[in-house]
Every structure is written in C-alpha cells, then in structure tokens.
Design a protein around this nucleic acid. Sequence first.
DNA 1: AGCATTTAAGACTCTTTTGTCTTAAATGTA
DNA 2: TACATTTAAGACAAAAGAGTCTTAAATGCT
Lengths: 135, 135
Amino acid sequence: MLLSKSCEYAIQAVLTIARKSDGDYLPVRKIADETGISYHFLGKILQTLTKAGILNSYKGPNGGVALVRSAAETTLLDIVAAVDGLGFAQRCALGLPKCSDESQCALHEDWGKICKNMSQMLESRSILDLISFYK
Amino acid sequence: MLLSKSCEYAIQAVLTIARKSDGDYLPVRKIADETGISYHFLGKILQTLTKAGILNSYKGPNGGVALVRSAAETTLLDIVAAVDGLGFAQRCALGLPKCSDESQCALHEDWGKICKNMSQMLESRSILDLISFYK
DNA sequence: AGCATTTAAGACTCTTTTGTCTTAAATGTA
DNA sequence: TACATTTAAGACAAAAGAGTCTTAAATGCT
Ligand code: FES
Ligand code: FES
C-alpha cells in the first residue's frame, strides 16, 4: 500500500471540504458523515493538515475547517507530504540504507522512474482538478 | 511504502540465491549473513517463497534453498505476488471499497497508469536481469 | 544407530498503525 | 454569564507488521 490509511482519509476529506464548503467553515462532523470516516480519527488527521498549513480551523458554533489556499492552489502532494512525508520517493526499493545515484541497488533506475511518475502525478493534480471529475 | 519489509527481504534473498548458488542448495544461514537480514525472520519469508513454488528447499547437511526455475524465468512480480499479493494494483488509491473502470474515484485514471507502470516493471525484470547489474 | 546440520512451524514479544473515548479549550449566542 | 457548539489534545485499545526464540522434523554422514 503506497498511501497510508490516514493519507487516503486526508485526501478524501480535503476533496469533501472543497466540494461542500461554500466559503464557510465545514464541521468535521459533516465531513465524517459524508465520507464515512470515523469522526475522532478524522479529527486527528485534520489537525495534522491544519498544523501543516493546508487547512484553517475555527472553534465554536459555525466553526469547522476550511482550505487555506484555493482548491486550485492545493495539490495532492501537499497532502501526502503533510501526512505521510515524502520518504516514498527517496527510499530504496529494497530497503537498503542509502538510495542515491552513487550507491545504487539493482532496482534503482526502474524504481526512480516510477517514483518520479508518482511525484509528478501528485504534484500536477490540484484539488480543483480532482473535484471537477465529480461534476 | 509500496513493498512490505518482508517483500524487500524476499527480493534481496532471491537475488543473493541467484548470485551465490552454484546449482547446490544455499543455506538460509548464508543468505542471512550475506544480506544482514535476521536469520529466523528470513526463514519464515523463504518458507512463503517455497510454498509459492519459487524456491525448493532441502533439509539436512548440504541442504538449503534453491530457485525452482532459472533466474531468467523468475520475475520480481512472482516474488511480490507471493509475499505481498497483487492487491496494490487493484486497490483504490483512496481506499474506496471498489476500484474498477465502472465505479471510479477521482484518482482512478492517474492511479491506474502508475499501477500499470509498476506491474510492467515488476513483470519485465527477471532475477537474471537484476543480478547482471552487479557484474 | 547416533550425531550434526538444516528447514519447518508455531508461540511469543515489540513496534507501528489504526481507531476509540474522554476531557479541555475556544467561541458565538441568548 | 450561562450554554451549546465545535476543534484540540491526549490517554487508551485493537490490529497488523516486524522480529525473536524454541522445538520438531528431515536428512546426510560416520
Ligand atoms: S538504491 Fe535501491 S532504489 Fe535507490
Ligand atoms: S476507484 Fe479509486 S483508484 Fe480506482
């Protein structure tokens, strides 16, 4: 599994926020109901996104979370980086301690291409791109 | 992390077997020393490969494990399939219960391409290809 | 037959990930 | 000020992954 469960949830949540919010804050409760993700678990994940500067949060009545930047300016890579980190693109496919063009393993070249594809996909797809799929 | 730790170890082990064995059985002990993988843990992983028909094993003095098919006929995909399964290529990137061309999520198309790349890489690279890298 | 070697198998522990629950803090509203 | 709403935070539990250890079974050698 490339993305952790938390990261999958984070992406689903951000997609939901971008689709459902009309500029106001969207309560975590609503996101949980919409996506089916456990409320409390989702809360923690969204905290990470808030700390990472991807979401704003506001407490109290009419509070909730909202995107800091526009959907067009927020990419999948931002979310993955915040939740899982970018290690996937730097780690050796065989788990060897170092992965660089100097100290290579047998998979390094093939693997590098795949990682690059993946990073490019994650970076080039904005949240806006993705929600337009549902329209 | 795409490949599990066990799967990384399995690949390392098979590469070692292909490189070090001269037709005889290679003891798990030797593979563990060579790769630095814990002996007992490696034992379990190699059992899985044996059950999957990738390795033969033989007990007793001069026993060990050996490739069933030649290094040229054994692919990375065989190993990954045996240890981790092929779920990675069928699972929805967002963890949604179904992933098919009918019931798509926003990432389905992009994700599909990446999975295909990955499968092709794993399938097209034989163990022989990989060990020739070290020569 | 007896011994040393080597894989097989399962119990067990440790760590990480995933998920739940409870309480605190902030904030708008009446 | 009192209250309802909503996020923040941390303790706790459950499940999965990773790793260790012990014992059993098979086999070759003397
Ligand atoms: S060294 Fe193994 S993938 Fe780079
Ligand atoms: S439905 Fe999500 S990747 Fe196929």
